[in-house]
Design a protein around this nucleic acid. Structure first.
Lengths: 246, 246
DNA sequence: GCAAAAGTGTTGTCCTTACACCCATGC
DNA sequence: GCATGGGTGTAAGGACAACACTTTTGC
């Protein structure tokens, strides 16, 4: 049995009191959002990065991040930052984790909530390229500013797991895609080869592929069929039972 | 192509500048942590809650939360809050999500990072019971203070998924447990009945159960074997491939 | 006609499910 | 001896892994 710790100050002194007073007694700190934006092009997984303009980091690569304004929630902030940095709107964004190490920012204590985002590089041309914004192959990113390498690694692991359970990878492709493109996405992200027949059978049996009756054009080999993903059906039928297994 | 948004102020004005100055220009806000502490007892899933002492909430139930200090990271804060509220230390804690709706706290803007925690009720007696701290069956919790009901629902869903992929539920049981107890945990959390033989086969085949050669005592039926979970083996052999399925 | 990738089926193995009977203990 | 849950095996069905040949297009 542990010894009884000191009571929490706010409770002891305020009792059944005013919420504004209570919140006023809390320390405040700056909050940022960082976006880890994955894209897919030329059969490899890319991530959208800028060069840090902090002198400490000497042009090291950095995620797309910025302060959270006093009057916006985190989802809004992440969307805004993405828009301000890239000119893109309405991108799928998902909160991944909040990082809070005390010394993670050289300018003082900054807590950051990280959002991961996936998009199709060819459908979203960059409207802005300040700070040398560009796509970098994930496998080639080594050093980064802040704790951003750690964050990138975290999000890459998150992505690997996530695409196996959600049709997230479809966001990396154009609306109409071939099964080869889809398999390339999976192979690139998971960093493994898969059997083509089994891969196609798996997706066919899920029943979310819509045959567009169109084919690839101008390819130097037999053209493949183009499909759309039936997100509507997916929403209706998605699993909630995964099965005990670890 | 979207119109080019206004440049981000911090970049435009500071250029390649001082990090301290940059962070100093960010708005600050109070940050809290909330702990969703699940426990298991009498074959039902419980959650540890207090009564809010804010007058607005009129004694409604609340998660265990408190401010994050200026000089502590979120993991530390969550552990501290748990200790201060319950007297318990060294509890498994995992960050689940950060909630940031602007009006979620009546005292002003407060962002909260939520940690989920699982523990065995009978192994952890409560050292402190201020604010009517006690265990509530999850299924019976209706109204709560703040957005805590929404947070609880989020964490309950998180838990359902999580226990299917990680040996998390073992934290809800004593070190030595019977397979019946284990199955009860799963049935209570997932809210479904399972076949006893298949459940046992499943766990036996995973190879993480260590037979203690002890039996239940003083039970009004044939006593069951007691097992330990081999966390060490689990760490060595845990899966990282789940298989595409959604 | 050659290179390159599309398209397609079968078989064996493993995992999951469904299901019924006897056993050890407390009272 | 009876109530309660412990312990066990098998058969059928479904999912997954492994594997090779023919087809269509561009050049």
């Amino acid at each position: 049995m542990p010894e009884r710790p000191k009571p929490i100050v706010a409770n002891a002194t305020l009792g059944n009191k005013n919420a504004v007073q209570l919140v006023g007694s809390y320390p405040t700190m700056p909050l940022t959002v960082d976006c880890v934006i994955f894209g897919f092009d030329e059969n490899s997984l890319k991530v959208l990065l800028i060069k840090s303009d902090l002198s400490q980091f000497n042009g090291k690569l950095s995620l797309l991040g910025d302060q959270v304004h006093a009057n916006e929630d985190l989802d809004t902030a992440a969307n805004r930052v993405l828009y301000e940095r890239t000119g893109m709107k309405k991108v799928y964004l998902e909160q991944a984790h909040t990082f809070s190490k005390l010394n993670r920012h050289p300018g003082g204590r900054v807590v950051t909530t990280v959002y991961a985002s996936l998009l199709n590089i060819n459908d979203h041309s960059l409207g802005i390229t300040d700070n040398e914004l560009k796509w970098h192959p994930v496998s080639e990113v080594k050093e980064m500013a802040f704790d951003h390498k750690e964050i990138l690694d975290f999000c890459y692991n998150w992505l690997k797991k996530r695409i196996q359970e959600h049709p997230l990878a479809l966001n990396l492709l154009p609306e109409k895609f071939s099964l080869r493109q889809l398999q390339n996405v999976y192979e690139a992200i998971l960093d493994m080869k898969m059997d083509r027949r089994n891969f196609r059978k798996k997706f066919a049996s899920m029943g979310f592929l819509i045959d567009t009756n169109e084919m690839e054009v101008h390819v130097t080999h037999r053209p493949g069929k183009l499909y759309k993903f039936d997100f509507e059906q997916y929403q209706l039928r998605k699993k909630n039972w995964v099965g005990i297994d670890f």
